[in-house]
Amino acid sequence: MNQENKVAALDAEAMSIKSVSLWRITWRRLFRRRSAVVGMIILGILVVIALTAQWIAPYDPLQVLIGIEPVKQRQAPCIHLFGCPEDQPQHIAGIDGNVRDEFSRLLYGTRVSLWIGLSTVTFAIVIGTILGALSGYFGGWVDNVIMRIMDVLLAFPSLLLAIAIVTVLGPGLTNALLAIGIVSIPSYARVVRASVLSVREMDYVSATRALGGSNFDILFRRILPNAMTPLIVQGTLGIATAILDAAALSFLGLGAQPPMPEWGSMLGSERNQVFTAPHLVFLPGFAIMLTVLSFNLLGDGLRDALDPRLAHNT
C-alpha cells in the first residue's frame, strides 16, 4: 500500500469516528447504566410483542368464545403447566367479561399503547418545537403571546384539561390522543425555547447571519440541533406520561372504545369485578406499568448519558 492510500485510509477512519462519536459515546454510557439496560430490554420485548402480535397471540383478540370453547365469563387463568386440567382449553390470562381470551387482548394492547405513546409525543414535539423555536428566536411580542398561551395550558392539571378537550371533541381514541398531545405541547415548547435562548447570541450564529444565512437557515440548521438532546430525553419521558394519561382517559371511558384491546379500557370495563375477577384488573394495569416503567428507565438513562457534565466519565 502506498503512502497516499494510507493517508486516505487514515483520513476516512478519522472522519468516520468523528461522525459517529456523539451517538457512540451516548450508546456506550447508556449501556453502562443498569437501569437503562433493564428499560431497553423491557422495551425491546414489548416492541417484539407489538410487531408479532398476530402470530404469537393464541386467539383473535375480538373473538367471543361462546359456543366455541367450554369457557365461562371472567374465568380465572388456566395454565396447563400449573395444574390446570389438560382437557380444558388453556387461557394463560383467563377470560374477560365478554368471553374473550384476555392474554391475546393483552398482547394486542402492546401495539395500541406503543402507538399512543409515539404518536402523541411526535405530535407534541413537532408543534412544541415550532412554537418554542419561534418564541425563543424572535422574542418580543411573539414570545410573549406564545408563552402566555403555554402558561394557560399549564394552569390546568393535565388530565383534567385532557378530559375537557375530549368532551369538546367527543370521546374516542383519536380525540384522546389529540387531547393528550395538546396538553403536553408546553413542556416541549419550553425546552426548545430555553435551548434557542441559550445559543441565540453565540458567535457562530452571528457568523451565519453575517454570511447571509436566512432566518430559516439559522433557526433550523444552526440553532435547533442544540435542542435535540433535551428533546430526546423529554420525549422519552413524555411517552411514559402520555401512555399513563391515555390509559386514564380510556379507563374513564373517554379514550379507546370497546372492543378495542386497549389496557386502560380493558381495566376500566372490569373495575367493578376487582373482587371477583382480580386477574382482569391486575394484568392490564401491570402491562401499563411495565411499559411506562421501561420508558421512564430509558429516559432517565438517556438524560444521564447525554449530560455533557458527565462527559469525563467515558
Binding site: 386514564a248 381495566l267 382480580p278 394495569g285 406499568m289
Partner: peptide, 20 residues
C-alpha cells in the same frame, strides 16, 4: 421508578383488593 410508573387507578383497585 416503579412508583412513578404505576397508573393511579390500578394501584387504587389493587390496594382495595388486598386490604379490603
Amino acid at each position: 421508578n416503579i412508583g412513578v410508573s404505576m397508573p393511579v387507578f390500578w394501584l387504587g383497585l389493587m390496594l382495595a383488593y388486598v386490604f379490603s
